[in-house]
Amino acid sequence: MKSTKSLKDIINASNMDSDMTEKQINILSAAIELFSEKGYEATATSEIAKKAQVAEGTIFRYYKTKKELLFAIPKALSKVSLFEIFLEDFNEILNDEHDNFEDFLRKIIMNRKKFVSETAPILKVIIQEVPFHPELRSKILNTVIFPSTENGISIIEKFKLKNQIVDMPSTTIINLIITSIFGYLFVHYIALPELPENEQDLEYLIQYILNGIGQNSTLKNTPR
Rank of each mutant, 00 (worst) to 15 (best):
R61D: 06
T45R: 01
P74C: 05
E135L: 09
N198K: 09
L34W: 02
G212Y: 12
K64S: 06
K66L: 01
L105R: 06
L202H: 01
D17G: 10
I25L: 00
K79F: 05
N216I: 00
K67G: 04
L205K: 08
D17C: 06
S217V: 13
T171I: 15
T65Y: 05
N163S: 14
F182Y: 15
I155W: 04
A30E: 01
A49V: 09
G57D: 06
N221Q: 13
I32C: 00
I174Y: 15
I213G: 00
S170T: 14
V187D: 11
F90Q: 09
E135D: 15
M1H: 11
Q24I: 01
Q200S: 12
I209M: 10
L202V: 09
M16V: 07
P193S: 08
S14K: 13
I213N: 00
I190S: 00
I127V: 00
T43I: 04
V144Y: 10
S18C: 05
Y184L: 06
Q200I: 10
A42G: 07
K66Y: 00
T222Q: 15
I156L: 13
I153F: 04
I174T: 10
K160L: 13
N151V: 09
K51S: 06
A55F: 14
S170R: 09
L94R: 10
I122H: 05
Q24K: 01
E203V: 12
N211D: 09
I25M: 02
H133V: 11
I190N: 02
